[in-house]
């Protein structure tokens, strides 16, 4: 089975190299999408030997993931793994994510930060944000509450699922949109526990608390857009 990791990266020249070299031994290929970075992300990623694509301008994480997923499929991926560029996802969980797909037990495997493994350094305000997103997801988006992590960026899917999950949200809202598409399809999905490391660095760049409002607004606009 050909496993290809997709890493969208925006201004990650410092961390992308290390992230890629950690992931490389665990997968058969890596697609990095440089999302219009203004720093040397493209060159840093290229040096590792990964397939690097470049967005001519910044289009957001969701857009980067979709471009990368399309590229992975073209490169003959059987399993596509989505993972963040900033190193907050521990790559050692990739085999755990891929395992249920290999065994044919699931089409989509979602990494959850809230299934026992305590995330490191997760601030209280971020917990409140997750709770708010979860409530919004279930009430407005119709995503089942049994899903423990509303906003996980670490996931794996087989080629069939990758082809069928046609997510359109370019920015942060792609997470909720994907969960809605997954849970409303006949695709078989499971959650597995993963550990995320929050550092000051990654927090500075990750979701801000106000982003919940932005995500809700983007999802709302998305309902009126083709």
């Amino acid at each position: 089975m050909r496993i290809i990791a997709v890493i969208p990266a925006y201004n990650e020249e410092k961390r992308i190299g290390e992230t890629i070299t950690k992931i490389q031994p665990l997968v058969d290929g890596i697609v990095v999408v440089d999302d219009g970075s203004t720093d040397a992300t493209f060159d840093a990623a290229k040096r590792t030997g990964a397939t690097v694509l470049r967005h001519a301008m910044n289009r957001g994480q969701g857009a980067g993931l979709k471009t990368g997923t399309e590229a992975a499929l073209r490169l003959g991926a059987d399993v596509v793994v989505h993972i963040d560029a900033d190193g907050q996802h521990d790559p050692s969980f990739i085999p755990i994510l891929v395992d249920p797909i290999k065994k044919g037990e699931a089409d989509v495997v979602l990494g959850s930060r809230f299934m026992g493994l305590q995330p490191e350094g997760i601030p209280f305000s971020r917990r409140v944000l997750h709770r708010a997103i979860k409530t919004f997801n279930s009430l407005v988006m119709g995503i089942p509450r049994k899903l423990t992590d509303p906003q996980s960026g670490l996931r794996a899917m087989n080629a069939n699922a990758a082809q069928r999950l046609d997510f359109r949200q370019d920015r942060m809202a792609h997470c909720s949109e994907l969960l809605r598409l997954i849970t409303r399809s006949d695709l078989c999905w499971v959650e597995v526990p993963v550990k995320v490391i929050y550092s000051e660095d990654t927090l500075a760049k990750g979701n801000k608390n106000l982003d919940a409002v932005k995500i809700a607004w983007q999802l709302f606009l998305g309902m009126f857009s083709k």
Binding site: G36, L53, H55, A56, M57, G60, T67, A71, R74
Partner: peptide, 24 residues
């Protein structure tokens, strides 16, 4: 707003096509 979102998505589609043009 809705029209802008539509334009943004078209823009993304173009950026994506450009990024993928060298892949088979």
């Amino acid at each position: 707003f809705v029209a802008m979102e539509g334009l943004e998505r078209k823009l993304t589609e173009m950026v994506r096509r450009d990024a993928l043009r060298d892949l088979p």
